[in-house]
Design a protein around this nucleic acid. Structure first.
Length: 288
DNA sequence: AGGCGTTTCCGCCAAC
DNA sequence: CAGTTGGCGGAAACGC
């Protein structure tokens, strides 16, 4: 039954614009279900228990959280619960990310928390004030109408509405000082610092200062949240940017290595191979 | 929370 | 000549 529902929902996500808005009311019993896409959940009214295969936690009106990929979840003990879900596939959406990744809250909401929840942690989540809630609700409504009406250029406008929602929520989270969210927010601050300064020499000492954590605490929290060490993350970030430049520019390999933070082109080529499996030039030549 | 042994990074030269 | 790989050693990052 659960898999049938997931399949049914998947068919509702078109290839050319994989976003959909769905609303659930308490009277609809929603069993555990799973699906391959992301789900941005906003609790509009009431309360209930959110259940996943890793545990359960209470939710109330104003809560916002993201479920990612293959996590089974559902709701129980609902009391006048009204929920709005935005289902989306971030990769196929191809929305311009610009500088959103410079916001700590973006990392916390869309990467760190979903990953953390899959391990059974729920203490951290975004809670919106009434004013913020109504703003988000209006944008969600606009998004839904674009998706339903499908007037000319609806893809463009729907993406814009979705970006408005993502950006606003990320900003909200960035400015929060919720104790339960503090550890993840600190990692989020480290991530946004890396996003902005990845091309410069970065030492662990700086990240400790940015995140306000000791070296030990930083390393442990970082690995717990991302399954990777800070310097490993930085290297992968640099290589990721380098491969973009290899695909989309005519710059020389050495110049690209230099621009993404490798002062030594020999070292750049070696790290590129260790991450991507091939050399930079072979990677550029293989793009088809 | 800090110490310590081990691993990895990183900049350099050399050689295809 | 640009790019890639290998080796080396001090520095740092890492995990216990």
């Amino acid at each position: 039954m659960a898999s049938a529902r997931a399949t049914e929902v998947e068919h509702l996500l078109p290839d050319d614009l994989p976003i959909r808005v769905m609303r659930w009311h308490a009277q609809d019993s929603l069993e555990l279900h799973r699906h391959p896409f992301f789900e941005l959940v906003t609790v509009n009214a009431g309360r209930g228990i959110h259940v996943t295969n890793a545990g359960e936690f209470p939710i109330v009106a104003g809560d916002v959280f993201v479920i990612s990929g293959p996590v089974s979840h559902g709701y129980k003990m609902t009391d006048r619960l009204v929920i709005t879900n935005i289902l989306f596939l971030p990769k196929r959406l191809r929305m311009p990310m610009q500088d959103i990744r410079e916001l700590p809250g973006y990392h916390v909401l869309f990467t760190l928390e979903p990953h953390y929840r899959a391990k059974g942690h729920f203490e951290s989540r975004l809670h919106l004030e009434p004013r913020e809630r109504s703003l988000v609700a209006s944008w969600v409504e606009a998004l839904d109408q674009e998706l339903v009406a499908q007037k000319p250029a609806y893809r463009f406008l729907a993406t814009a509405h979705f970006m408005q929602i993502v950006g606003f929520l990320s900003r909200c989270y960035s400015s929060r000082r919720v104790p339960a969210a503090a550890p993840l927010l600190r990692i989020g601050q480290a991530l946004s610092y890396l996003e902005q300064h990845f091309a410069e020499p970065i030492r662990l000492e700086e990240l400790e200062r940015i995140a306000h954590m000791s070296r030990t605490a930083l390393l442990r929290a970082f690995r717990q949240a991302l399954d990777v060490s800070p310097i490993d993350y930085l290297i992968r970030l640099r290589i990721s940017r380098a491969s973009e430049l290899l695909r989309n520019s005519e710059l020389s390999v050495s110049e690209i290595g230099y621009r993404v933070g490798f002062s030594d082109s020999n070292y750049f080529a070696r790290q590129f191979r260790s991450v991507m499996g091939t050399s930079p030039r072979a990677y550029r030549g293989a793009k088809a």
